[in-house]
Design a protein around this nucleic acid. Structure first.
Length: 442
RNA sequence: GUGAUCAUGGCGAAGCGGUUAACGCACCGGAUUGUGAUUCCGGCAUACGUGGGUUCAAUCCCCACUGGUCACCCCA
């Protein structure tokens, strides 16, 4: 009979073993950070009406998985968690504002897969809608920083920018680009490439944009490259924005965010750095934007990013619902950690119950359940075989103890415990005495 | 979506126009029958991505497809 080839679609992956443990660990930290700050959980469907997800024909629209369903509806797999969230908020007018939610879920993008880049991947989002405040921006950023810090697997740099500041600078240095409809965003895209292609090329590319002058571009680049410590020279930028109230206010917000982070009395392994050239992110961002990279693997790209999106819900309703959110790219983060080789080997834990002969299941499970009830991982050998085999299996499964149940233990209602690290063995212990060894703290 | 590159058992990896296609890891069994490292012995999957073509002969050469990887684009 012809066999079906066991295979997966490109860009899709199975996760198991240590990779899956790390994924679970990250999700736990996300839930923890969320509940600490009162973000509530939300789950939305994977599939949405295509029109809900599609923007104005931008680059990202091309990467939306989309098809006609069996009922003739045009449907699409969600591209991110933010747009469906905006749909949810628009659809539920009775939410108590500000509304804070977190969400862990898979998203799909029809891209060409690469390392750390998948067609299906998990994002962990924190969003706040209904509050255009510094505190809202900060809660989102802080939550992400805490998650990354608590993973304890590396240090990160979060670069912080603001669309209004960059917009203000463009008005000063390249005012005439605003005469064409896409002039501003064209400039932002080019400026964002600064680190990658260098200032000369950026100036060249900027000069090609209608309305831009070479001199203006050079001055702008010079200003953006000025450093004050690790970040942009905010004082110099502020000096060029004096006449622009919006941009000055935006800059003030950035400074306040930096101050807030510095005031937090908690060691963070994420360094927050202002860098005004950060412009990207999705098209719907309107204010603060940020990207986060792993210090030891910056080439992997952003493992977390986000920003303020004050107009997103207006796709659906007239109400003004300012929003801010950030996302941790769980699978990219995991891939980066794997690349770095920082996945922990599973530690020895728990008990493996070795059965010396058949017919001992009753006592074995009584004992196992006794320990399980105390929170001890306890697995019973499922295939009776030679003792040596079962011990080897206990070792391979990384159990801390092997517990032997044989005729003697059965008749005396005891267990024999062997510490698999030290080789030390304690024969015929009562369940209580065994528990003292397994959980000394009790 | 554009370009480059690669494709041998579950994984890693030799070979290369004509071979019984190595080897390592993993897995399974055994080394006198209540004990895990190591060691020793044995077994294992009928492994050359798929489909065409060139050739007396193709895993090896050519083309297409599929898949992996990398760069661009975009992005987590």
């Amino acid at each position: 009979m012809k066999k079906i080839e066991a295979r997966k679609l490109k860009g899709f992956a199975d996760y198991s073993g240590t990779t899956m443990s790390l994924r679970s660990q990250i999700m736990e930290e996300v839930r923890r950070a969320a509940s600490e700050a009162g973000f509530i959980a939300l789950q939305t469907p994977a599939l949405e009406y295509a029109e809900v997800l599609l923007g104005e024909g931008g680059e990202t629209d091309k990467q939306v998985f989309m098809w006609e369903d069996n009922g003739g509806r045009s449907v699409a797999l969600r591209y991110d968690l933010t747009v469906p969230f905006a749909r949810f908020v628009a659809e539920n007018g009775n939410l108590q504002m500000p509304y804070k939610r977190y969400q862990i879920g898979d998203v799909w993008r029809a891209e060409k897969p690469q390392k750390g880049r998948f067609r299906e991947f998990c994002q962990c989002d924190f969003d706040i809608i209904g509050a255009d405040t510094l505190s809202a921006d900060f809660e989102v950023i802080l939550a992400i920083m805490k998650v990354l810090t608590r993973l304890n697997k590396g240090t990160f740099t979060m670069t912080l920018g603001h669309r209004d500041v960059l917009g203000g600078l463009l008005k000063v240095f390249l005012p005439d680009v605003f005469q064409s409809p896409n002039g501003e965003s064209a400039c932002l895209i080019v400026i964002d490439k600064l680190d990658k292609i260098g200032p000369e090329k950026v100036v060249n590319e900027l000069s090609l944009i209608s309305g831009a002058t070479r001199e203006g571009a050079q001055d702008l680049l010079a200003l953006l490259q000025k450093r004050d410590g690790e970040g942009s020279d905010l004082a110099a930028i502020k000096a060029s924005l004096v006449s622009d109230e919006v941009a000055t206010a935006a800059l003030g917000r950035l400074e306040s965010l930096l101050d807030l982070v510095n005031a937090i009395d908690m060691p963070l392994s994420v360094k927050l750095v202002a860098d005004l050239k950060i412009a990207r992110g999705l098209a719907y961002y309107t204010g603060v934007v940020f990207e986060t990279t792993l210090d030891s693997l910056p080439s992997f790209g952003s493992v977390s990013s986000g920003g303020r999106y004050d107009q997103l819900t207006q796709r659906f309703v007239d109400r003004e619902l300012p929003g801010v959110g950030g996302s941790i790219g769980l699978d990219r983060l995991v891939a980066a950690f794997e690349e770095l080789g920082v996945l922990e080997n599973t530690k020895r834990a728990g008990v493996f119950v070795v059965l010396a002969s058949q017919g001992l299941e009753s006592w074995a499970f009584q004992a196992a359940e006794f320990f399980r009830a105390q929170g001890v991982l306890c697995e019973v050998s499922l295939k009776p075989s030679k003792l040596a085999k079962q011990f080897a299996l206990a070792d391979k499964m990384n159990r801390a103890y092997a517990m032997v149940i044989g005729e003697e233990e059965n008749s005396s209602q005891t267990v024999t415990l062997k510490d698999l690290s030290s080789g030390e063995q304690h024969s015929k212990l009562s369940l209580k005495d065994a528990l003292k060894l397994l959980k000394p703290e009790l």
